[in-house]
C-alpha cells in the first residue's frame, strides 16, 4: 500500500527523526496484560498506575477506580448517609481525582490523597444539600421504623447513622476515617491535613455526641 498522505515533510532519514524524550518513570513497558489487570489489578501497584494515569492512560485509571471504588463509596456513604447521594459523591470524587492527577506530586500515598478528595466532595454535597434542607436533628422518624425486639440492633444502627449525620462535618470526617475506615490518628491527620492533636480532639467530641445521642435508643 502506498502512503496516503503526508502531513509534514518527511525527513531524509526517518530513523534520525527526533523522538520525544522519555518522561522520567513514565514509560516503563506496559504490563503485558493490562486488560486482565483491570479486572483485579493485583499485579500493578498504585504508584505505577498513577504514573500511567497522570499521562493520560484511562486504562490505568480504571484499574485504580476498580481497586478503590468500594472504599470510596463506603466513605461517601458514611459521610452523607444515603446510597443515592453517596454514589453521586463517589462518582464526583473519582472524576475529580482524574482531573487533579496531573497535580498529584506523590508526596502522600494515592489512597490518602484520594480520601481527601472524597471528603471534600462529601463536604460540597452536604453544603449544597443544607442550602435546600436545614436539618434540625429532630426530624420525625418513620413509624415503620419503630423499634421491635426482633429488629432492635438494626434499629440502633439506623439511629447511629442518623446521629453521625448530625455531627458537624469537621467531627464527622475524622470519626469516619478513624473509627470506621480504620486509619490511625496520625493517618487521619494526614488525610485531613491537620495535626494529630486536633484530630484526637474532634474525634473525642464526636464520640461524646454519639454516646449522648445513642443513649436515647437503648
Amino acid at each position: 500500500m502506498q502512503p496516503q498522505s503526508s502531513l509534514v515533510s518527511p525527513a531524509p532519514d526517518s530513523a534520525e527523526q527526533p523522538v520525544p524524550p522519555r518522561l522520567s518513570g513514565v514509560r516503563e513497558p506496559l504490563s503485558a496484560n493490562l486488560d486482565a489487570a483491570s479486572v483485579d489489578g493485583a499485579n500493578l501497584d498504585d504508584s505505577y498506575l498513577v504514573q500511567r494515569a497522570r499521562v493520560g492512560s484511562t486504562e490505568a485509571f480504571e484499574v485504580l477506580v476498580h481497586r478503590y471504588r468500594d472504599r470510596v463509596f463506603r466513605v461517601a456513604l458514611r459521610m452523607v448517609g444515603d446510597r443515592a447521594s453517596a454514589e453521586d459523591v463517589a462518582q464526583d470524587a473519582l472524576v475529580s481525582a482524574w482531573r487533579a492527577l496531573p497535580s498529584f506530586k506523590g508526596e502522600a500515598q494515592f489512597s490518602t490523597w484520594l480520601h481527601r478528595i472524597v471528603l471534600n466532595s462529601a463536604l460540597n454535597h452536604v453544603t449544597r444539600r443544607r442550602q435546600h434542607t436545614e436539618l434540625t436533628g429532630q426530624e420525625p422518624i418513620d413509624p415503620a421504623d419503630q423499634p421491635e425486639q426482633a429488629v432492635e440492633s438494626r434499629h440502633r444502627e439506623k439511629a447511629l447513622r442518623a446521629a453521625i449525620s448530625e455531627l458537624p462535618f469537621d467531627q464527622r470526617a475524622p470519626l469516619v476515617m478513624h473509627q470506621f475506615e480504620g486509619y490511625t490518628y496520625e493517618q487521619t491527620a494526614e488525610i485531613l491535613q491537620v495535626n494529630e492533636a486536633t484530630v484526637r480532639g474532634r474525634i473525642s467530641r464526636a464520640r461524646r455526641a454519639l454516646v449522648e445521642s445513642m443513649q436515647d435508643w437503648r
Binding site: R69, D70, V72, F73, R74, Q91, L94
Partner: peptide, 11 residues
Amino acid sequence: TPAPDTLTASV
C-alpha cells in the same frame, strides 16, 4: 458496603 455495580462504568 460494596459500591454499586454501575459506579465504575459511570466514572
